[in-house]
Structure formats: C-alpha cells, structure tokens
C-alpha cells in the first residue's frame, strides 16, 4: 500500500512538465525515504534524477519498496487536470497495475480521482559516483534559461568555461558567434539573485544546447540553478525543490574527434 499526500501539488505538476519531453517512460521508485526517479533520455545522452523526500509530504505511507512504471506524457495529461492550488495524493495497492492520483481543491469542494495504467519498464539503473567538481556555479535559474534560449538561436552547442573571471557561455553558428560572461556577483539584495562561482580548477566543456534548453523547463521549480562541471564528467544541472529534494539533469559532453 502506498499513499503520498502532497499539499503543494503544483510541485509535482512542475516536475512532470520539466521532464516529460526529455523522457518518455520511467519507473518511479517509492521507499520509506522518498519518491524518486532516475531515467535516461532515449538517446542515452542525458539522465534525470528526481528526489522528493518523504518528509516533504504531509502524509507518507509506503509499506514496501515499489517501482511504478509510468508513461510521463500520460501522467502529465492527468496532472494537468489538477489545479495549481490542489493537494495531490498518489495511491497504489501492492501488486496493482494502476496508480490513482487524487486532487483536492484547497476548500475541499472539488475532489477528483484519476486512475492511470502502469507499465512494465525495463530500465537500466545507473550508478552515479560521488564526485568533486572542478567548478560549481550557482546563478539565477531565469538567467541561465535566458542564456540557453538566446544562444540556441545562434548555434547548436554551448561551450561553458569557468575561470576566476567568471563563467562564460559561448556558441558559434552560420551567422556568427556569441559570448556571454557572468561574473561572480554576491552584492545583490536577495541571495537568489547572486551568481556564485566556486572554482578549484578552471574548466571548459561543450554541450548540446537542445538538452540544456530542455533542462531549463525546471526553472519554475527554483529561483536558482547549480551547474557543476569537471573536465572528465557529465555536467550536473540541479534545481532544488523547496524543502523536498531536487531534480538533477546530467548531460554528457561533446568532444572534438
């Protein structure tokens, strides 16, 4: 038996909107510690890892570990039927081939339930090693989204370079080139407007903008984004989910042949 009650249901709606175009089908894993997901995109270039800790739910019951295969497009269709202020409860019985999403309006005058068919997904679970990253940049998520969108109008790839001067996003395409430098800026009114660069070694890596742009669909989940880079590793683009956990996108770099 599984029953998870999330008062801020909009978080789950936003999570789905941010991953449904990257991943078609995924297993949601439920344990006593939380509700999580790990899935690769169909080209096996990017990986998304989601964690919603049990403490973030108003009610969290998970009698035994469960893995529920869901089509994210279908799940998104159902969650779109929940209001932004609705409380969302996820329910499933042991061994059942369906999951139920229940939506309650804040005033309890409208209660809906949607039952969705589960699917068997033979997904590979990858081990993500703990890593010390050479450069970690935290910046406003809207700024990062703006940069990715702007650069994708000019080129297909972005070179992210971190030096002690700042973080540089560069692209090149048929019409020309673009360089955007964001310098460390901690003298702002609000901490979420700061750009903070923690660099132990300078790093420069090339990534496909198509994926970066897809990751920025999670911008609504957090005011800030953290980009962790090391020369021999996929980049990690992390959006914290208030009080609950995170959504992390891993993207393998492109290298010169």
């Amino acid at each position: 038996m599984l029953e998870l009650r999330l008062v801020q249901g909009s978080l789950l709606k936003k999570v789905l909107e941010s991953i449904k175009d990257l991943v078609n089908d995924a297993n949601f894993d439920c344990s006593s510690s939380g509700f999580s997901l790990q899935a690769m995109d169909s080209s096996h270039v990017a990986l998304v890892a989601l964690l919603l800790r049990s403490e973030g739910f108003e009610h969290y019951r998970c009698d035994r570990n469960m893995s529920m295969g869901m089509n994210l497009g279908n799940m998104s269709k159902m969650l779109r039927c929940a209001g932004n202020d609705d409380i969302i409860t996820i329910k499933a019985d042991d061994g059942s081939d369906t999951v139920t999403f229940m939506f309650e309006s804040p005033t309890q005058d409208k209660i809906s339930d949607f039952e969705m068919k589960l699917m068997d997904i033979d997904s590979e679970h990858l081990g993500i090693p703990e890593a010390e990253y050479q450069s970690i940049v935290t910046m406003p998520s809207a700024e990062f989204a703006r940069i990715c969108k702007d650069l994708s109008g000019i080129g297909d790839t972005v070179v992210i370079s971190v030096t002690k001067e700042g973080v540089k996003f560069s692209t090149r395409g048929d019409i020309g080139t673009a360089n955007i430098v964001c310098r460390q800026n901690t003298t702002v009114d609000k901490p979420e407007e700061a750009t903070v660069i923690n660099m132990s070694e300078p790093v420069s890596l090339t990534f496909a903008l198509r994926y970066m742009n897809s990751f920025t669909k999670a911008t609504t989940l957090s005011n800030t984004v953290t980009i962790s880079l090391s020369s021999e590793l996929p980049v990690v683009v992390e959006y914290k989910i208030a009080e609950m956990g995170y959504i992390r996108f891993y993207l393998a770099p492109k290298i010169e042949e």
């Binding site: 096996h44 990858l126 081990g127 496909a208 393998a252 492109k254 290298i255």
Partner: peptide, 14 residues
C-alpha cells in the same frame, strides 16, 4: 563538429 558522448560512458549499470 564535436562528437556527442553517451552518458553510459561515464555512469555504469548497477
């Protein structure tokens, strides 16, 4: 252009 690497090159199956 540069070659896209696969994520599975960095993270192995568990």
């Amino acid at each position: 252009g540069p070659k896209q690497l696969a994520i599975t090159r960095f993270f192995s199956k568990v």
